[in-house]
Design a protein around this nucleic acid. Structure first.
Length: 306
DNA sequence: TTCCAGGAGAGAG
DNA sequence: CTCTCTCATGGA
């Protein structure tokens, strides 16, 4: 089936910008597992062609996917609001059409617990092995994958089983949070009705979920665009390009919110992915921007420590 | 071999 | 409050 009129939308940038770990590109098509079924999506202009491993009611399915891909949102309006300088303007031009997904909550919670002190390719590998071991086997026209493990499956997993999937020291965090979901201490359903602040507090009460991971969950699953995950790259970007000094997370958060407004999460995603994408490109102009960013941080650190 | 990866927690000051 | 150290893992 098809989704029509997906204007100002880029499937590539949306699915390859580090917010979801479950999509694979094969030729022109993206294969991924979303809430228990394999999806195959291709984009031609403003039309998305979608195949599912399960039978779907077309109207409801299209509505669900439009929400998942954030297609209904007026993103050009948001980008116009946050386009305050040359850095943002370049990121917005380069990544035009990138959207912030609205992903399933439990999978997002578990995935970003695993993301701490880790890199994207390893996170993807851990999630793939966990799904193979604890999820359900799925097929779509010869493509095979596994559903994301349920909270119950991970809550009852042994430490050895989790370590065998490569979770490392995060195994306890993952199992503890899975148990909290099973016994209701972490009320996922109720959290979807909470404010950004309330949901974030609920998440941060869990062992293994700090402010950054909580913000990732609020932004990539709960639709709170005011959430600002501050990782090392976002910290660097704000310290060098905007504040031009060392700054605490709280200072960065206050500046970013006042500068970009209530949709600071969207601005963050464009800056983050732009910097990451450029590090893989042999584009002199882009690389020089990165390099000047990094060296400026190093000089800043030197001057403050000496 | 060392360093780093979309960090968090415990402890010290 | 801020700073520092450690945590398991694998690719560069």
């Amino acid at each position: 089936m098809q989704i029509q009129n997906a204007t100002d939308f880029s499937l590539k940038y949306t699915l390859e910008s580090g917010q979801s770990f479950r999509w694979n590109r094969i030729d022109n098509a993206y294969y991924g597992v979303v809430e228990g079924r394999i999806l195959k999506i291709t984009q031609k202009g403003t039309t998305l062609c979608v195949e599912s491993s399960t039978d779907e009611d077309e109207t409801r399915f299209v509505s669900y996917l439009r929400h998942y891909l954030d297609i209904g949102r007026d993103v050009p309006k948001i980008l116009a609001e946050v386009n305050n300088d040359a850095y943002m303007d370049r990121a917005i031009q380069k990544l035009w059409g990138m959207r912030i997904l609205n992903q399933e909550l439990w999978e997002t919670v578990a995935s970003f617990i695993l993301s701490q002190n880790n890199n994207v390719s390893r996170i993807r590998g851990i999630i793939r092995r966990l799904s193979e071991r604890f999820g359900e086997h799925l097929t779509l026209a010869g493509y095979e994958d596994y559903s994301f493990p349920s909270p119950d499956a991970l809550a009852t997993a042994t430490n050895e089983e989790l370590l065998a999937c490569g979770t490392g020291y995060r195994a306890n965090y993952l199992r503890d949070t899975a148990e909290a979901v099973v016994n209701g201490e972490l009320p996922l359903t109720a959290m979807k009705q909470m404010s950004y602040f309330e949901a974030k507090q609920e998440l941060m009460h869990r062992n293994g979920i700090g402010e950054k991971v909580a913000d990732c969950i609020c932004l990539f699953s709960l639709g709170h665009l005011a959430a600002l995950p501050i990782d090392v790259w976002i910290k660097r970007i704000f310290e060098t390009l905007y504040l031009r000094r060392r700054a605490t997370h709280r200072e960065i958060r206050e500046f970013a919110h006042s500068y970009f407004g209530d949709s600071v999460g969207y601005a963050q995603q464009y800056l983050f992915h732009y910097v990451h994408e450029c590090s893989n490109w042999a584009d002199a102009e882009h690389l020089s921007l990165i390099e000047s960013t990094v060296t400026a941080v190093e000089k800043q650190c030197e001057s403050t420590t000496s």
